[in-house]
Each structure stands twice: as C-alpha cells, then as structure tokens.
Design a binder for these strands. Structure first.
Lengths: 216, 216
DNA sequence: GTCTATAGTCTGATAGAC
DNA sequence: GTCTATCAGACTATAGAC
C-alpha cells in the first residue's frame, strides 16, 4: 500500500466512470469537480485526462452507454404475443431495468442540458427510439381493438413518465418490494389503455390529425 | 439611460427572483454564478446581497414560494362532488397549474439535492401535503366503490409523476393545445383507477398492510 | 499511467465609498 | 441601494518528469 505511482489501466478506467456517475447523480454535474472525482478514484486530477477528453465527455459517455444498454436489453427481452401481453412485458421490463439504475436514470433526465448540442441530439435520438418501441405496441393494440386511447404518442410519453417516476421515490428498504410495485403499475398501465365495455362513448383517437409529425 | 447608480428597490428585488429562476432552470443551480444573475438583472454582483442572504437562500425562496402558491391555488380550486368528479378536477387543476410554470417545476425536482437538510425537510413537507390531497380523493373513491386500485399511496405518486411529466415534453407551439393534452390525461387517469365490470377479479388493495407508515 | 506544478480564469461573499 | 475593489480559494486543463 501507499503506492503513489504506477500503471493501473483496466482498473482506474472503469472506476472513473463509476465514481463520476455516483457523484454526478448525488450533487449534479456542475457541482462536481474533477478533483473530487480524482480523489474518490484515488489518483490525482491530471490522471483523469488519460481516460476522458474532458469533463463533458465523461457525462456524455455515461448517458450514451446507459441508453445503448437500455436498447440492447429491450432487444433481448421477450416482447411477443398480443398487444396487451406485449404491454405488460414492456412495463415489467422498464421497471426491472430502471429500478436498479436510479443514479443514471436521474442523470439522464437532469443533465441533458449540460450536453453540447451535438451530444444532446445523439442522446435524444436514442431515447426517441426507445419511446417508439412502446408507441408501436400501443398502435398495434389500437388496430386489434384491445386498446382504447386518444393519442398514442402522448400516451407513450405519459406511461414512460409514470413508470420512470418510480425511481424518484422507491426505497428498497421501504414498505413494498420491487415485485409488489411492479404489480401496482402493471394494473395502472393496463387499465389506463384497455378498451372496456364501460367507456365506449369516447373516440379512441381524437387528436391524431398530425400523429407522425415528430413533435409530441 | 446609462444610469450607473441609484435606488431601485421594488424593481430589482422581483427581477432577481425572475432571473435566478430562469437561469437555474436552464443551466442548473450549481452552474449559475451570482455574477451571471447580476449581469442579467443589470446590477453588480455585490448588489444581489441586498435581496438574498446567499445563493442557496435564493433557491430555497423560489421553491418555497412555488409550493405555497400551489397549496393556496389548490385550496381555491373547486374540488367538490363525487370522488370521480374530484379526481377529474384535481387532474385538470394539476395540469393547468404546472404547465405554465415549467421552469420552477423542473427546479423543484432537480435541485432538491442542493438544499440544506433543514430547507429540504421544509420543501418535502409542503410537497407531501399536496400529495396527500390526491391520496385522500383516491381513498374516498375506494370507500364508495368508484375506484379500484391496489395501493392508494403508490397510485398517488404514480399519477403525480404521470401528470407532472407533461412539463418535460409539452411544446406550446406543438401539435396539441394544452386543453387537448388535458383531455388525454383526464382519460388516462380516470381509467387507470376506475372500477369497471371488466376487471373485478383483482383485489382492490393487495398491499395496504402498512399504508400509513409514512414511507411509500 | 501517474505524478507534481502551474497557467489562467472564475467563484461566493464582504468592505467601504457614495 | 448600488458601486468598485478585493480576498482567499476553487476550477479545468496542460506540461513535463519519472
């Protein structure tokens, strides 16, 4: 111990990402200094620049890696069956993926504004791709008549906000297990969009006059 | 014009709050300097300290004023009638109040971590009071049999996340008017919690074993 | 790959003139 | 109530020794 110098590639690199993620999530990107990160990693500030071009690249890499892992995990998930079955599978996938990653989820929403314009566009495109996967399920269910909803795009954004919001309050040591929370939310999501005999009077898609224009 | 000195109480004071809110929301509390705020207000940095004890008091005052105005506005809203009517009124109120205040809503979620512990407790208590108003409506609807849901507390937090999420994507110049968005969300909220003849098999409140313990 | 040292700039907050 | 001037420290990023 007490080694003050030497080569640690393969150890320091991942540790920089880990520490930066934790500190950014706790205090905010702008509030965390490169010296703080270096101190927790166990090196001097200058050494960080062997692993990142600058502070903002550190943030971008964290967000990009998160979004790409999300996409890969969804690809690997089993989202077959009828639209209601797909919706339940998506709901459970979203909760299961996001709940253990509360730090980076918080970062993904809070620190987009600290990305450069080009980097922002890249992250936003990845997010849009994920949203589109849910929207496709909702549209399929409209076609089959399983779902009744006024606007697939807005409903998509609403459901994702509903589900992602869990990460803001969930306490692993709290009253409910993650599985119990997932049950509550599966119910909410399913009932929010399911066509039922009690509510036939409203048109399914009142505001779809420009549904593919890109804007929400 | 070109006046460099003089007394402007009653003008500068509110302007400091305005500018601070806008800059904090745009760039984050930690990323905004007192000099930046002063420059946009049109004074020198030192003059700000006539209006705030320090930078953090500026943030706390913004959040406290917002939460107290929210409470007063809800008190003034017409939330009578059956639980379903109350729920629709709450939904419309929440959207109407939050949509024109996107900056401070964003601040209220993102910058809680930059409050001192005492200040955090005060803001959290105000928020909890607001959440409890919705939870009371849900519990009333469970009693009357109008609503069916598994957990009033979790459902409350879910619905608030759903509704508040609108502020993250809504574009006043976009495809939908605020009134149209409100219709979509009224539908989602109502259907998510309404007891219907199609879904009688699930218990209304499976996880309520500790519903008043304080933790979600 | 990590160290030390440093350049150049910005920070929150205060003091005292007017 | 606002100004100017200033303190003491922190910041990102780089240079060069090892």
């Amino acid at each position: 111990m007490a080694r003050k110098q030497g080569s640690h590639a393969g150890i320091t690199g991942p540790k920089v990402q880990e520490v930066a993620l934790r500190l950014f999530a706790q205090a905010g990107f702008a509030a965390v200094s490169m010296r703080q990160i270096a101190a927790e990693v166990g090196v001097q500030a200058g050494a960080l620049y062997n692993y990142t071009a600058d502070k903002q690249a550190l943030l971008f890499d964290l967000l990009r890696d998160h979004m790409m892992e999300l996409g890969r995990a969804l690809d690997a998930a089993d989202l077959r069956g009828t639209p209601p079955a797909q919706l339940e599978a998506f709901t459970r996938f979203h909760i299961a993926f996001h709940l253990p990653r509360r730090d980076v989820v918080f970062l993904s929403y809070m620190e987009l504004r600290n990305l450069s314009p080009e980097n922002y566009v890249r992250i936003a495109a990845l997010r849009r791709g994920y949203e589109d996967r849910l929207e496709a399920i909702l549209r399929a269910g409209l076609q089959t008549g399983d779902f009744a909803l006024r606007d697939p795009r807005v409903t998509t954004l609403g459901l994702i906000a509903l589900l992602t919001g869990i990460t803001n309050w969930y306490d692993p040591g709290g009253r409910l297990t993650a599985a119990e929370v997932a049950e509550v939310y599966c119910d909410l999501v399913r009932r929010a969009v399911t066509a039922g005999p009690d509510l036939p009077e409203r048109p399914a898609e009142t505001f779809a006059r420009d549904a593919h224009a890109g804007k929400a």
